[in-house]
Design a protein around this nucleic acid. Structure first.
Lengths: 161, 161
DNA sequence: TATTGTTATACTCTATAACTATA
DNA sequence: TATAGTTATAGAGTATAACAATA
C-alpha cells in the first residue's frame, strides 16, 4: 500500500479526479489505513509541543494506566519489539516522566511508574487526544463512532467485538 | 502508536490479560491501525509467491485500472513521494509487468501501461486480495462490511462518504 | 533451559535536496 | 517560473542476533 504519513500535516492525498481507485477503495485494509493515517496526522502536530510522538504517548499512557507494568508487558500490549522499546523508555525517563523501580518478585525485571510530572503530562495529552478524535473526526456521531470501533475490533479480533 | 507489522504473520498481539488498554481501545486511530495491520498481515504472505509487496500490488493495480497514467498521478493517488516511486516502477518494469511509453502531449512525462503478463498477474492478485479480505475478514457480513467502509471514508474524507 | 532487559546492527520505509529536460 | 522524472542521501521505523543476569 502506501498512502503515507508525510511532513506532519500534509493535506489529505486526493480526491484525484481522473484516476480510477474504485477497487482499492473497496478494500477494508486500504480504507482502514487511510483513516488511521488521517487521524494520526491530526494528533501528531498537537502532541509535538510536548515533544511526544504517538508511540511515546502510547507508552506513557500504558504506564500511567498500569503502575508497575514491565517493559515486557508494554511490548506485548503494543506489539513493540523489546530492543525498540529501550530507547522509548529511556527517553521518557530522561525527561523525568517515568521511573523504573525494582520489580517486587522478579529481579530481572523492572517496574515502570509515571512520576507526578509524567502523570500531569499524560493526563493533558490524553485529554487532547480524546478531543482531537471527537472533534476532527466529528463527522461521526456517537452511534457511528461506537459502531465503527465495534466493526474494527471485529476485524482484528474476530467476533469478540 | 505502534502495534506493528512484524516478521510477516506474527500472531495478533494481545489479548494481554493483566494490562489495562481501555483508553487506547477507545480511540478510532488505534483500532483503525490495528485493523489495517491485521489485514495487511493476511494479505502480505499471499502476495509473496509473486514477489509482490502490498505497495507493488497497489501500484500495479492502479496502472492496470488506469492505462496511460503517469508516475506523478500514481504518486498523488497513493500519497507516495516521487523519489520513492522510482524504484517501484523500475521493479515492475524489469519483471516485464508494466511498460513506459512516451506521453502523447507532455514530453517530460511517461505513460504507464501493464503488459499482457502484467495484466494477468494483476488480475490474479486482485482476485486473491478480494478473497482474503472477504474470507479472513468474514467475521463481517455484507452489511457490516459496507457500513465499515462508509464510516472509514467518512473519517478520512469528511462527510462525502 | 527459558526469560528480562540490553547492545549492536541490518533492513525497510519515508522524507529532503538538488539536478535534467521539458512546459 | 514551474513541473515530471530522477539521483543521492538522510532519517524513522522495524527486525535479528547475541549477551549478562536472573528465573
Amino acid at each position: 500500500m502506501s498512502v503515507i504519513s508525510h511532513p506532519a500535516d500534509t493535506p489529505p492525498p486526493e480526491p484525484n479526479p481522473g484516476v480510477d481507485t474504485r477497487f482499492l477503495e473497496s478494500l477494508i485494509g486500504y480504507n482502514a489505513r487511510r483513516a488511521a493515517l488521517a487521524i494520526i496526522g491530526h494528533v501528531l502536530p498537537r502532541l509535538e509541543p510536548w515533544g511526544l510522538r504517538v508511540v511515546d504517548f502510547t507508552v506513557l499512557t500504558l504506564i500511567a494506566h498500569n503502575p508497575g507494568i514491565t517493559s515486557r508487558q508494554v511490548c506485548a500490549a503494543l506489539d513493540i519489539l523489546p530492543p525498540n522499546l529501550v530507547g522509548l523508555v529511556r527517553g521518557l525517563e530522561q525527561r523525568g516522566w517515568i521511573e523504573r523501580r525494582d520489580h517486587p518478585t522478579d529481579r530481572r525485571a523492572q517496574a515502570l511508574y509515571v512520576t507526578p510530572r509524567g502523570a500531569a503530562v499524560q493526563a493533558q495529552a490524553q485529554a487532547l487526544v480524546s478531543a482531537v478524535e471527537s472533534s476532527d473526526v466529528t463527522h461521526l456521531d456517537d452511534v457511528e463512532r461506537t459502531m465503527l470501533i465495534r466493526l474494527l475490533r471485529k476485524v482484528y479480533l474476530g467476533r469478540n467485538a
